[in-house]
Design a protein around this nucleic acid. Structure first.
Length: 272
DNA sequence: GAAGGCCTGGAA
DNA sequence: TTCCAGGCCTTC
C-alpha cells in the first residue's frame, strides 16, 4: 500500500536519475490503467523533457516541458522500476518509458491494476480528478486548524484520516501507526477526542511520516524502491499487521476491527 | 455514512 | 474453493 512516504521516496529517487531527461518513447501494454486516452500520451510524451518530479497526496507528479504533467498513482500493488534496456517485461508490466541518452527505462508494474496513469492538461482539465479532490498535505495543516477541523466532524477518527479530502497521502498503515502513537482508538468519534490528544495526533502524523521517509517507506507486499530494494519502515510498525502480537508498551495483544471494509489495528489498552 | 465494485495473488 | 488485502470511485 504505497502511501505518502513510499511515493516521496520514489519521487526522490526518480529525481536523482531522470530529472532533465528527454522522453524518447513509450509503450502501453494495458489501457485499463490509463486515465487519459492512449493517443493523448502517444502524441504528447515523446520529445518532452522532465523538468521536475514531485508528489501530491499518493500521486507521483512529473512536470514536463510544454506545460504537461504526467501523473502516476500506484494503487495497492503498483511498482515503478528503473531498469537497463531492454528490460524484461514481466506479465504485469503495463507501461514503459524510454529516454534519450541513457539505457535506463522506467517500468510500471501493477498486478492488481488499481494504479492509474494520466497526462494533463487533458480536455481543459489541469489535474486528474483524484488530485482535484485532495485536501491539504499533512505538513500544510496547522495544529490549531487540524484540531478545530476534526472537532467539527462526527465521523470515526480513522475514517477521517483515510479520507484523502482531509489529509492527502495518509493510508491505512500510517493512519493506524499514528493513532497508536497518539493513544487514540480508531473507532473514536472525531468530535469526542480531547484537544490535547488531537494536537498530539497532529504532531505524531508528521513524525511518523518523516521517519517512514527516512527508512525508505514500508515494504509489506509489493512496494519496492526504483531499484527493486525493499523499504525498511515495516520493521518499526507497532500495530499495522501486528494482530495478536503483544503491544510494545503494555503487552496486551493487538486487536483489529473492520471499519467500512478496511482493517484497523490497535492496542485496546493504550488507545482510547 | 455504509456498502459494493474493480482486481489478482496468496493464504486458509 | 473461498476469502482476504485495500487504494479510490460510485451508488444508495
Amino acid at each position: 500500500m504505497p502511501e505518502l512516504p513510499e511515493i516521496e521516496t520514489l519521487a526522490f529517487e526518480l529525481r536523482q536519475s531522470l530529472a532533465g531527461r528527454e522522453i524518447r518513447g513509450l509503450q502501453i501494454r494495458n489501457d485499463s490503467i490509463l486515465e487519459t486516452p492512449r493517443r493523448w500520451l502517444e502524441k504528447n510524451l515523446p520529445g518532452k523533457r522532465i523538468v521536475q518530479i514531485g508528489r501530491r497526496g499518493k500521486y507521483l507528479r512529473a512536470e514536463l516541458t510544454g506545460g504537461f504533467t504526467l501523473w502516476i498513482h500506484l494503487g495497492m500493488t503498483g511498482q515503478l522500476l528503473l531498469e537497463d534496456s531492454p528490460a524484461a517485461l514481466t506479465s504485469h508490466t503495463h507501461f514503459r518509458l524510454t529516454f534519450t541518452g541513457t539505457r535506463q527505462e522506467l517500468l510500471f508494474r501493477d498486478p492488481r491494476r488499481f494504479g492509474r496513469i494520466a497526462l494533463t492538461p487533458y480536455r481543459g482539465e489541469e489535474l486528474p480528478r483524484g488530485v482535484q479532490r485532495l485536501g491539504l498535505e499533512p505538513a500544510e495543516w496547522k495544529c490549531q486548524e487540524f484540531s478545530a477541523f476534526v472537532k467539527r466532524r462526527r465521523a470515526r477518527i480513522k475514517s477521517l484520516l483515510l479520507d484523502q479530502r482531509v489529509v492527502a497521502g495518509l493510508g491505512n498503515i500510517y493512519a493506524d501507526e499514528s493513532l497508536y502513537r497518539a493513544g487514540i482508538h480508531p473507532l473514536r468519534r472525531a468530535r469526542k477526542i480531547p484537544r490535547t490528544k488531537l494536537s498530539r495526533l497532529h504532531g505524531v502524523i508528521l513524525k511518523v511520516l518523516e521517519e517512514a521517509v527516512r527508512w525508505g517507506g514500508s515494504s509489506i507486499d509489493d512496494y519496492v524502491h526504483l531499484d527493486g530494494e525493499r523499504g525498511r519502515f515495516q520493521e518499526f510498525h507497532k500495530v499495522y499487521g501486528k494482530k495478536g502480537e503483544g503491544c510494545e508498551i503494555c503487552r496486551t495483544p493487538i486487536q483489529s476491527v473492520k471499519l467500512s471494509g478496511r482493517t484497523s489495528s490497535f492496542c485496546p489498552r493504550c488507545q482510547s
